[in-house]
């Protein structure tokens, strides 16, 4: 499989008179291979949009190496721009134009046959509203128009920055179906989001960014497996006695309200055997599998202390030293 997007050690600092220096992306790596639906996950302000902007030549990186479809970016971006459809942060359109005219102008500027405009509008469900002015569109319709503009080129690579913004549940589902069908036709998709369920539903690969650094990357199931603490929820009649019995069998267990949580167990039959031998019958034995949300929260340090409002730039200290994120890459070492 060939790399469609490669980013190594991307660093971007914004300087402003008022706010001084702000490191938006801090040595970030990303690898997207052909055919993936790759989720790009991170809390607000973690550097997703900045990364995409740098990749697409809109902001100038301080350092790092990037390539798109095999061409170094931004130097040779013009060579591949015709095959990369992208939206970066909800794009703004000129309100006085109709949706159709907006796309036609872009098609003309990019040398794409104007007949593609109708196809793209159809794909995003705007066929019947294409001749209305953009300023009369709802947020979700504008977002659809943006996606249509990215699809206009019949891209090999689609980069979508938070495409679910402003969409209603039906719209989100349609967007999901659209991405799936595009991926099925061979388009590689990179989709950024802070909505975890979304990524888990459609993405096969994921890269998690926090404070401008990669904290996890790889296949979704592998990232999840890497964070599986092999925990089980156990319900029994006498939880306190059960804890003692399990401790005696050298298992760690804690009482959690009316049930217990046992961890570090590879084989769950051990639990029912230990308890059953002493006449304690297990009522429920549920594996506690991590979902992307818990992994995300754990890695990005969000939601540590529910009593204190979390601030956007706050994140868990990174595991390991500088530039040493947990590498869960398919080809990389396991965590």
């Amino acid at each position: 499989m060939s790399a469609v997007i490669e980013i190594e050690g991307l660093r971007k600092t914004f300087h402003s008179l008022r706010n001084g220096r702000r490191v938006a992306v801090d040595g970030f790596d990303l690898l997207v291979e052909e055919g993936q639906i790759h989720g790009f996950l991170g809390p607000n302000g973690s550097g997703k949009t900045t990364t995409l902007r740098a990749l697409l030549g809109l902001v100038r990186a301080d350092s790092g190496r990037m390539s798109v479809l095999g061409e170094p970016s931004p130097e040779l971006l013009p060579r591949v721009a015709g095959r990369v459809g992208a939206i970066v942060e909800s794009p703004q359109f000129f309100g006085n134009f109709t949706g159709y005219r907006t796309l036609r102008l872009l098609a003309r500027a990019g040398g794409v046959p104007v007949s593609r405009v109708d196809e793209a509008l159809e794909l995003v469900g705007l066929r019947d509203r294409g001749d209305e002015r953009v300023k009369g569109y709802s947020l979700g319709m504008k977002q659809r128009l943006a996606v249509a503009s990215a699809l206009l080129k019949d891209p090999r690579l689609l980069i979508l920055d938070e495409p679910a913004n402003g969409l209603d549940p039906a719209g989100i589902r349609e967007m999901r179906d659209l991405m799936r069908s595009l991926a099925a036709s061979g388009v590689t998709v990179l989709v950024s989001s802070h909505i975890l369920g979304e990524i888990q539903l459609i993405c096969d690969h994921v890269t998690i960014i926090s404070r401008g650094r990669r904290v996890a990357a790889g296949r979704v199931d592998e990232v999840l497996a890497g964070h599986d603490r092999h925990e089980f929820l156990v319900r029994v009649a006498e939880p306190e006695r059960a804890v003692e019995l399990l401790h005696a069998a050298e298992l760690t267990a804690v009482v959690d309200s009316d049930a217990l949580v046992v961890n570090g167990v590879t084989d769950s039959t051990v639990i029912s055997r230990v308890l059953g031998e002493q006449g304690l019958w297990v009522g429920e034995l549920t594996p506690l599998r991590p979902d992307l949300e818990s992994v995300f929260l754990e890695l990005t340090g969000a939601g540590e202390d529910p009593s204190v409002p979390r601030q956007v730039d706050h994140a868990a200290p990174l595991p390991g030293a500088e530039g040493d994120p947990i590498d869960l890459d398919v080809r990389g070492v396991d965590a």
């Binding site: 697409l56 030549g57 809109l58 931004p74 971006l77 013009p78 721009a81 992208a86 970066v88 794009p91 703004q92 359109f93 000129f94 872009l106 500027a109 990019g110 503009s149 080129k153």
Partner: peptide, 14 residues
């Protein structure tokens, strides 16, 4: 300011 230039640059990155 309206992002028109950015849109255009995504099409023509020159």
């Amino acid at each position: 300011n309206s992002g028109g230039v950015v849109n255009l640059l995504l099409w023509r990155p020159r």
